[in-house]
Design a protein around this nucleic acid. Structure first.
Lengths: 120, 120
DNA sequence: CCAACCTTGACACGCTTCTGATAAGGTTGT
DNA sequence: ACAACCTTATCAGAAGCGTGTCAAGGTTGG
């Protein structure tokens, strides 16, 4: 027995079958499929399901938030934009006069945000 | 005029005053306060508010999700746990026999998840 | 002192997330 | 062939997000 079907996986991970499909929709854990379309959960998937539960419970986060973290890893433009937004601390670098600060910051963000680069 | 009150800030950023308080609750932009408690938005905050709007719209993300990104930056334990969860790809490292894989992974996660370290 | 602002707290409403349940139909093993 | 499983799709309800609005009260500047 090397891979479990959805209800078996549900029993051994503490999720419900319904939620396993939902977790899959959220893009977090996508089990392989048998030729007839049955989901097949291997040891790695099972383990990830268990630790995902711990993660959600311990830190009180939702699937959407972990899904967002996943998106941050896949979408370079998004990650760059978010990184940049956080990097722009409310403190202007020495050498930039106050009057120019706003325009300077705006240009910087504009450059990053404008290109509508579709990240497949 | 170096800092704006909440309604002035709302007018120049496109947010509503209500939403500025909400954004603050989400832990994203915390303006300084006057001695009597009025919120004071300086140029940097105003700029961050504007770019935050662009970020949300361009990538269709919610405040909670950016709030989660903020939390990821502040809470070391959370970030480590999330990083670790994503790093555990469904592929076992060479040299670990299949039978030990589950336990190995479990221990690894357990170590990371167990310590209830309060991150102020 | 009075208008015009600010504060926090709360109610409300529409939309999404999370979760279970149920239905209609395909697969599997004995 | 039949029970027991799987699939997708849908309804439904509790909880949370995003937003406006209102209430009761403090601050500010003529």
């Amino acid at each position: 027995m090397d891979a479990l079907t959805i209800n078996e996986a549900a029993r051994t991970t503490g999720w419900s079958a319904r939620m396993l499909r939902y977790v899959e929709d959220a893009g977090l854990i996508e089990p392989s499929r048998s030729t007839s379309g049955y989901r097949l959960y291997g040891p790695a998937e099972l383990q990830r399901l268990r630790t995902l539960r711990q993660l959600l419970e311990r830190f009180d986060v939702g699937l959407t938030e972990v899904g967002f973290a996943a998106r941050l890893r896949r979408d370079d433009a998004l990650r760059a934009a978010v990184d940049h937004w956080f990097a722009a601390l409310p403190r202007r670098p020495a050498g930039v006069p106050a009057d120019d600060w706003l325009r300077w910051e705006q240009d910087k963000h504009q450059k990053l945000l404008m290109p509508i680069k579709e990240t497949a």
